[in-house]
């Protein structure tokens, strides 16, 4: 899947949970992605988060940490 689509979708989710503050927002984003995203999409997102230069929202990057550890 195109990285731009994944980045846009993940950032949109983050934007709507940002009001919770980074830690809670990251947990909520991770939970949302776990509930609704196919595993392959999650894997691709984690790979994107590992790289540099991807315009991922900091909340998404934090959420990816939660996804990796859960």
């Amino acid at each position: 899947m195109a990285s731009s689509d994944l980045v846009r979708m993940a950032n949109d989710i983050a934007a709507n949970f940002r009001y919770l503050g980074t830690e809670k927002a990251a947990a909520s984003v991770a939970n949302h992605i776990r509930m609704f995203w196919a595993p392959a999409m999650r894997t691709e997102l984690l790979e994107l988060a590992r790289g540099t230069g991807t315009p991922l929202d900091p909340v998404v990057i934090a959420a990816c940490q939660v996804l990796k550890t859960s």
Binding site: M1, F36, A38, P39, A40, M41
Partner: peptide, 18 residues
């Protein structure tokens, strides 16, 4: 036990070849 692809995800993945 894991969610599948949503409709727009299917289209994105089709363009991507997966």
């Amino acid at each position: 036990s894991e969610p599948g692809l949503r409709l727009p995800n299917m289209f994105d993945a089709a363009v991507d070849g997966t």
